[in-house]
Design a protein around this nucleic acid. Structure first.
Length: 507
RNA sequence: GCAGCCGUAGCUCAGCUGGUUAGAGCGCUAGAUUGUGGAUCUAGAGGUCCCCCGUUCGAUCCGGGGCGGCUGUACCA
């Protein structure tokens, strides 16, 4: 029990679902963004930035009310009492931007955008409350060529990020096909809207639960591992069979080509006008994929891709990683899609009252990065640490400053030690920083007009063979004395020996 | 949101049927070594035992509530 008066000490902790990114992670993300940007630029998209905060009503759907102002989005009230929200994706702000600037934009309007988005929901593996997305969208393009382009570009991005062909798949479906299926089994019309939503959500879970699980969800319901029960759609046995047959139709021996998949779907939903339209659209996309040489190893038609309800109106697609990801403990982690998109013809209409067809693709950069990190495929060490100039004499700081400046002017990443500890600690600091070279100028050196350069990379290797500390220190391994005037050249020589160019990048 | 498990130093964890000063390993800071990274030895710093309420003479331990974490599920714009 503390008897001292209470002093308030805030607990230092990052809010849940949010995280700090250290140097390696930030650099890794920047590199990922650069690679995606290159692909988007090559496809002819232009950058756009919009604000992170929007009026809540402009984002739509999640209008905060007094009781539950934070359902899904982070919202707060401005001075004038208007509700503001942190953007939860980059598409809704795009719709606002397009509506606001409609007359001045070239149409079709093609833009890419990256940035943080925020969602007030439960975090999970690779799922954060603040995360980075990288979107490309084409607005005012009615034909499915725009959708096909998104799929191919998505594949290009994943490969540009170092994911080999075959380790990912762009999975494509069409909401019109799903609507056709529902119509075919007698679930058309306004009265069945809720049931339709439940059926679509069940189909979406095929990947996770398999045919058996989906059939339970379509029927009476399903109990999960924790004993929690999910209510089913309550379909009849024949309806369940029809849906399950459709979901299974894109798989296995029947799916040797995309055309085959479309043929089997046409048999199931072709009688419905909307279903036939959806299949015609996918047929057209297939022709474009073929013309561009994007085979089944990159893009497939997939019956269980549904995506969010009440949003997409035509082709929908997502990119999935096909290999298993395991966490630190070796348990498999289910990562969800690392990119997704589709056609949304109604978003701009909210503002303008006229339909503006649009399609887009969004890469979940943070989630993809988390997956690559667990795979050990994230390149974390591509920037060389700075050369460290030791500061052994407080009265000679100007000399050290001069050395650092010379190195920097030569394009070498360098810093002088700015802490308050002695030489041993300074060496430890240089070591921990991963510095390739330590520059030492103490009394001894100054007397002779020389400086000591210590090759820390070489020294680290040599230390493995030296058992005795005294010998290790007295031997002063991997260090040379050189004239002060040759500082830059000699440091460069050591860096070159380790394949480092100027200390800025690894060779 | 719902369900299950969990919550003790920076990290990984001990801890007596509820009893006075809560421990270890690793890590951190420093000394041994007038100016040298690893190893070794030594010392030091670091804890409202998640929070609140209750039971009790007394709670890190028992009960209730809350918060947080993990897993499953729901949702995923």
């Amino acid at each position: 029990m503390s008897k001292s008066p209470k002093t308030f000490r805030p607990k230092a902790r990052v809010p849940k679902g949010l995280r700090d990114l250290s140097a390696g992670m930030v650099r890794a993300e920047l590199r990922m963004l650069a690679r995606i940007r290159e692909v988007y630029e090559r496809y002819g998209f232009d950058p756009l930035e919009t604000s992170a905060i929007e009026y809540a009503d402009a984002l739509g759907k999640f209008l905060p009310d007094e009781d539950r102002p934070n359902e899904g989005v982070f919202s707060f009230q401005d001075d004038d009492e208007q509700w503001l929200s942190l953007r939860y994706d980059l598409t809704a702000p795009l719709a606002r931007y397009v509506a606001e600037n409609y007359d001045g934009l070239p149409k079709p309007f093609r833009r890419y955008q990256t940035g943080s988005v925020w969602r007030n929901e439960k975090p999970g593996p690779g799922r954060f409350r603040q995360f980075t997305q990288f979107d490309a969208d084409t607005v005012a393009a009615p034909g499915v060529a725009a959708d096909a382009e998104m799929c191919m570009m998505g594949a290009d991005c994943l490969e540009a990020l170092g994911i080999p062909r075959g380790d990912y798949r762009i999975r494509v479906n069409n909401r019109k096909v799903l609507d056709g299926l529902l119509e075919t089994i007698g679930l058309g019309g306004d009265a069945n809207e809720l049931t339709r939503a439940t059926v679509l959500r069940s189909i979406d879970k095929f990947d996770k639960l398999g045919r058996k699980g989906v059939e339970l969800l379509l029927g009476t319901g399903r109990k999960d591992e924790s004993g929690d029960f999910t209510k089913g759609a309550g379909l009849s046995p024949s309806q369940i069979t029809a849906v399950a047959d459709y979901v299974g139709s894109g798989l296995g021996e029947g799916a040797t080509t995309r055309k085959r998949v479309l043929e089997s779907w046409r048999k199931i939903v072709g009688a419905s006008a909307i279903g036939a339209e959806g299949i015609d659209e996918l047929t057209e996309m297939d022709a474009l994929f073929e013309a561009a040489g994007y085979g089944l190893d990159r893009i497939e038609f997939n019956s269980w891709i549904v995506r969010g309800l009440g949003y997409y109106t035509g082709p929908v697609f997502e990119s999935d990683l096909l290999f298993e990801v395991k966490d630190e403990a070796g348990n498999p982690v289910r990562f969800g899609s690392v990119g997704s998109g589709g056609r949304y013809d109604g978003l701009v209409e909210r503002f303008k009252g006229v339909k503006v067809p649009a399609t887009g693709f969004s890469i979940g950069v943070s989630r993809l990065q988390a997956a690559l990190e667990l795979l050990g495929k994230l390149d974390l060490e591509a920037v060389a640490a700075p050369v460290v100039v030791l500061t052994l004499d407080a009265a000679r700081m100007a000399d050290y400053q001069q050395m650092v400046t010379e190195l920097r002017e030569a394009g070498i990443r360098a810093e002088m030690y700015l802490g308050g500890s002695g030489m041993k600690a300074q060496m430890k600091y240089a070591d921990r920083r991963g510095a390739p070279v330590a520059v030492i100028e103490g009394e001894d050196e100054r007397a002779t007009g020389e400086i000591t350069l210590k090759d820390l990379i070489l020294g680290s290797e040599m230390s493995k063979e030296i058992a005795d500390n005294t010998a290790w220190r007295e031997g002063q391994p991997a260090q040379v004395s050189v004239p002060r005037a040759r500082l830059v050249e000699e440091v460069k020589a050591i860096l070159a020996r380790h394949g480092l160019h100027s200390g800025l990048h690894r060779g």
